[in-house]
Amino acid sequence: MTMRIDLPEETIAGVLAKAFGNRSFLIGLAITLLVVAVALLSFVWTPYDVTKLVIADKTQAPSWAHWFGTDHFGRDILSMIMVGARNSIAVALVAVGIGMGIGVPLGAFAAARGGLADEALMRVNDLVFAFPALLSAIMITAIFGPGAVNAIIAIGIFNIPVFARVTRAGALAIWPREFILAARAAGKGLTRITVEHILPNIATLLLVQGTIQFALGILAEAGLSYVGLGAQPPMPSWGRMLFDAQTRMVTAPWMAIFPGMAIVITVLGLNLLGDGIADILDPKSRRRR
């Protein structure tokens, strides 16, 4: 005999109530919202102008005037982190968008068709996957020239196989279920079943993978900027700031610590958010409590 406990009805209020009972979701959400708010604020106001170089104020330690200190050109680090957030978020968001937009349909198609189409797609996928992402991104930006747009494309391309794979694996687990058979017996085609039944059932999976890729995107952008292939000066970016800081680690540690912290906290927040969302949307998590 199987044991079944009746689950509460899944209403919007119910989901919200669950969301506010989930600590990692709340913390993740707070951090993410903070980063987004800071990025938005930077459009209208920053403590100092990040394009203005004040050599007289160079490499100052944190003080009341410059909370996070200044860099070797006398720019305010807090202001640069605020503007850099904008860059990081934009790059990661678009990169995840590219990955999902192309990867999810590819994976769903491979799972639905199976056979040769599936094999071919997944082997091409493996090929892309086999390149170290950062190395290939360097290659792409080296060919098309450095810059934020090319960085986005490069990171986006490496999100495609990730999403294709996750989608395919999730979809393959749903396809043999009886309700899919019932839908086929009702004469629905592969596309229709994918849209109506498969995707809603793997949405949680994709959402969680999305937050992970978003965090990785921020890291990748920082990495690309660090080697000088991301956003170009004078546009500040977190990775670029770390690059500038590395030779002054001993004399001006704040130049490395604050952008580094910004990256760590943002990635942590996104991962917590992803965990939280997975918990909330997973029907089994309701039983655990």
Partner: peptide
């Protein structure tokens, strides 16, 4: 298909939970 339908064994598995 319209004139031919099916009832499956498992009443839990034969519906999309969402």
């Amino acid at each position: 298909r319209r004139d031919m339908q099916v009832v499956f064994q498992d009443p839990y598995g034969s519906f999309d939970p969402r």
